[in-house]
Amino acid sequence: MPKWAMVFDLDKCTGCGACMAACKMENNVAIVDPEEAQAGRALFWMDMINAHEGEYPTVAIKRMPKPCFHCDNPPCTKVCPVRATYLNEDGLVAQIYHRCIGCRYCMAACPFTAKVFNWWDPRWLEGATTCFNPDVSLRMAGVVEKCSFCAHRLHHVNEVARVDDRALQDGEFMPACAENCPADAIYFGDLENKDSQVYKLSRSYRVSRVMEDLGVEPKVYYLARRTA
């Protein structure tokens, strides 16, 4: 079974935000009211962490794109009372909106705050929903949502590969963020495939994962020069 994982090369990433926009457009993520957004309820599956390090004038701004980490030992799935979120056999942490009852336990359990909650119904113009990406359903008020690694694209490429009767190739399944990164800083692929770029990079000396000591085994890796 494949094990999908993502690698960010922070030495390449400029923090331009293209991944955030690509994700929003691909996944029909709602845009909330300005006041709501300011209150911290803006919905970003792919978020950008800004951290200032050091003091003037030797200051560094670190920007870090943050999707869902699709942990191998996910804490969020264990608290879901209705199994709306679970780890599937492809290693994706699924979020089934129509099962979700909006208790937000999973949000509380996620150490990376990767999940967001629909406090309100996104109100689009009547009928306009047909001009969204038809591969992703629209969510409603009261459900939790998060980065899916663009799982809907996996359906598509899997189907194409099986019609052609061949195995999936490295790079064929590509989420929207990785597809559009202007710095080629996002790699995506199968960790089980020893020839994949992601596998090789996940063994780089530059690699690290966020809060590794928690033991949740995130499948999102960050590459960065060791500064210390």
Binding site: N88, A94, I96, Y97, V136, A151
Partner: peptide, 10 residues
């Protein structure tokens, strides 16, 4: 055939 939720739900 798989009955993984994600196989059909989106």
């Amino acid at each position: 055939i798989t009955n993984d939720c994600l196989a059909c739900h989106r």
